[in-house]
Amino acid sequence: MERNISEADWCRGNWGTLLLPINEDDSIDFERLSVEIDVLIDAGVDGIYSNGTAGEFHTQTEDEFYQVSEMLATKCKSRGMRFQIGASHPVPVVTLSRIARTLHLEPAAYQVILPDWVSVGIEEACDFLKRVAESARPVPIVLYNPPHAKRVLEPEAYSTLVKQIPELVSIKVLDGDIDWYERMRPVAAQVAVFVPGHHLASGVNHGVASGAYSNVACINPWAAQRWWQLMQIDMKEALGIEQCIQTFFAGYITPFAAQGFSNPALDKLLAAVGNWADIGTRLRWPYRWVSSIEVERIRKGAHRTLPGWFFETN
C-alpha cells in the first residue's frame, strides 16, 4: 500500500475534543455530553475526536467507551461533521478490541497511543502500529505521542514509522525548538503533524503543522476556528494572537500544571472558563481537578489577556 497524501487532506485544521462531564457519583453525564457535541458541531470546527487524554479514555469501562463513541458517530454523521475515535489504551489488545467494536461506526480515523506500561522500541512500535492498521482498515490511523508517554519519539523515529506504515495519516505531538521543526520537515511532507493548540500559528508558520487537536478549542471552539482561518490569510495577526494566548497560559494555566494538575484537569478548566458548554471541572477518580472556585478569577484574566472575540459564539 502506497501513501496517497491527497487522501488525507481532510486531516488538518482545528479539531475539538470531547471532554467528559462527570457527575458527583463519578458517572458520565451523557445528557450533558450530547449537548456538548451539538455545540462543537454548531461551532463549525474542522472535526471532533473522542477519547483523547482530555476525554479521560484511561478511566472508562469498555461499555462507556462504546457509548461515547456511538453517540459521537451518530450525531456527527447526521450533520456531516468529520470525527475520529480515540481507541487508545495502555494494553495493546484492548486497543485492537476497541477498534473491532467500533469499526462499523466509520470514523475518519482512529487515534492510538503506543503501549504504555513497558516502553516500546522503534521496531516494537512499528509492529504495534502495523497490527493496529490492519485491524482498522479501511480506516486510517493517527498516532498520539504526548510528552507524558512512556516513549516520546524523536523526529527521526517518526520518519521510520511513516515509511513503514502508509495507513498512518497523522501524528499528534508536543513541538519543540527551531531544530526540532527542521528535523520534522521530512515527516510533515508525508503526514499531517498536529501540534499543541496554543502553538498552532507558530507551527503553521514553520511550515510543519497541519493543525491541532486543540486545547484552544477548549476555551472557545468558535474562536479557535476563526483563529485557524486567520492563519490562512494573515499570519502576522495570527502570531500576535498566539502571543496573547501564551500570556494567558503563563499567567493563569501553567501555575496549575506546576502544582501537579494533569492535562485533562487543565483542559476542563479552560472549558469552564470559556463557559460554552456545561462540562464542569470535575475529573474521574482518582484524579484531582481544579476547583470551580478558581473559574471566575481566571475568566477575568482571560478577558484581560485574550482578544475579545474569544468569548463570542458566532
Rank of each mutant, 00 (worst) to 15 (best):
A8T: 13
A8P: 10
W10H: 10
G13F: 08
G13S: 08
G16Q: 09
T17H: 06
P21W: 01
I28T: 15
I37T: 02
V39M: 11
G47P: 05
Y49P: 09
T53F: 05
G55M: 01
F57D: 02
E62K: 06
E62R: 12
F65R: 15
Y66H: 03
C76W: 04
G80L: 12
R82E: 13
I85P: 13
L96S: 07
T102Y: 05
T102W: 15
Y110M: 10
Q111R: 03
P115K: 14
V120Q: 13
E123W: 03
F128I: 11
F128T: 08
L129E: 12
K130A: 08
V139Q: 05
P140G: 01
V142Y: 05
V142E: 12
A149C: 02
A149T: 14
K150S: 11
L153T: 04
A157T: 12
T160E: 09
V162C: 06
K163I: 06
K163W: 09
Q164R: 10
P166L: 04
E167Q: 06
V169Y: 02
R183D: 03
A188M: 09
H198A: 00
S210E: 14
G211D: 00
Y213C: 15
N215S: 11
A217M: 00
A217H: 00
N220Y: 00
Q225N: 12
R226I: 05
Q229L: 03
M231Q: 01
M231N: 02
D234F: 05
E237G: 13
I241T: 01
Q243K: 10
G251H: 08
G251K: 02
P264W: 07
L266H: 11
K268H: 07
L269D: 07
L269N: 11
L270W: 10
A271T: 07
A272G: 03
N275M: 12
W276G: 12
W276K: 02
D278V: 13
R282D: 05
L283K: 01
W285S: 15
I298Q: 01
R299F: 08
K300F: 15
P307Y: 03
T313V: 07
